[in-house]
Nucleic acid binder design. Sequence first.
DNA 1: GGGGGGAACACTGTCGACAGTCGGCACGGA
DNA 2: TCCGTGCCGACTGTCGACAGTGTTCCCCCC
Lengths: 219, 219
Amino acid sequence: MSVESLSALDRSTLRERSLEALRSAILSGRYRPGDHLGEVELAGSLGVSRGTVREALRHLQQEGLVTTGNRGMLRVNSLTSAEVRELFRVRAALEGLAVREVIASARREAAAETLRAAVERLSDEDEAAARIEADLAFHLLLCQLSGNSMLVEAWQRLEGRMRVAILNGAAWQAPMMARDRHVPIVEAIERGDVEAAVRVVDEHMTAAAEHFAEATESA
Amino acid sequence: MSVESLSALDRSTLRERSLEALRSAILSGRYRPGDHLGEVELAGSLGVSRGTVREALRHLQQEGLVTTGNRGMLRVNSLTSAEVRELFRVRAALEGLAVREVIASARREAAAETLRAAVERLSDEDEAAARIEADLAFHLLLCQLSGNSMLVEAWQRLEGRMRVAILNGAAWQAPMMARDRHVPIVEAIERGDVEAAVRVVDEHMTAAAEHFAEATESA
DNA sequence: GGGGGGAACACTGTCGACAGTCGGCACGGA
DNA sequence: TCCGTGCCGACTGTCGACAGTGTTCCCCCC
């Protein structure tokens, strides 16, 4: 009786799929920082028209993964170690606000529980890529639980740059994403200790900043 | 419901000019929140092709000035009063970081002086539009003087939403942008008093948040 | 052998057209 | 009157093509 229902994936536009493909290609390191991204070449390899990849590239440009070169040409972006440090300081400010709002929220208990569960997914053994995803998911969740949509948006805008920074030091990120590093945050939220929570987040970010900044310097 | 045609003597690309034209059209209130923005119609009134306005619209979408409606159609965005409050809390966090970094900076004195000059441009008598510009310029300058490029970027990403919020309560913004409100910030920076500076910024943002949130509610 | 001119080349900017799809409306039947 | 249904218009998604412009490299002349 029922016709094959169109899966939601087929609903996505070519532009969205191209965008996702390019983003993951860059983030997986298939393109090196500084590599030139030609519209025609990408269009050919993705099997779509130039206009379509063009839109995807412009989107990536606004995300900060791609930057405009000499003649309007686009190339893969990279971050200096100073920018990495700056990035983490902004993150600290944002996530500091997040923990503040989570603690002040009426649903603090439920939020803490959710975060506790997310921390458990931060395995110390998994693949590097999985660990990165779990780490970013934890911090995004923290922002989401604040209930501040503008905060979530701002954080997500930084996410692209974050991933670039992480990519630079991908080989050494191990100790940063460990479960130990995140448990104190959850505990401070559970206790409702604003000062401690903010301080812990700050320290976490400072340590991560140093880590990845050094990684970029030696690259 | 029309935008002025673009002048042809400019060296910038049509896409950039279309973007600027659309942005100022929305921000000047020529389009009301919820208004549908059709690609063909805009292309006609701007005198460019659909693909060109399409890119501009996508840019505006990422800026948050325009949001995707029912069928992938774009319409002018508006903010709820709750979102306005959230927005200002994020701004407070960002600008709090800014004053912290400015004070910690080696060029604190020079920065304070620059800010002092910017405050003077916050006239109490000028046109509403000019006052808004001067106010935003002051806060942007504050971020820029921190020397944190990622912070500047994050702030600018919020700027579009800011202007939407301001637009909603455009008639009542008078007391918010007054010089008195900003002088204490500069003074705290001059004294190097971090705690006071952050507190003043926070209060400034909270007051502004209430102001514009109420304005959007009664609109 | 070195430098200048010029001709392909390789891009991006911009455009007009075709096709798919969604919403609304009129019409006919119960 | 109310509901199903098929048509129509509008709008976006996507594409291929043309034009303008740096860039590069080769060839000729000094």
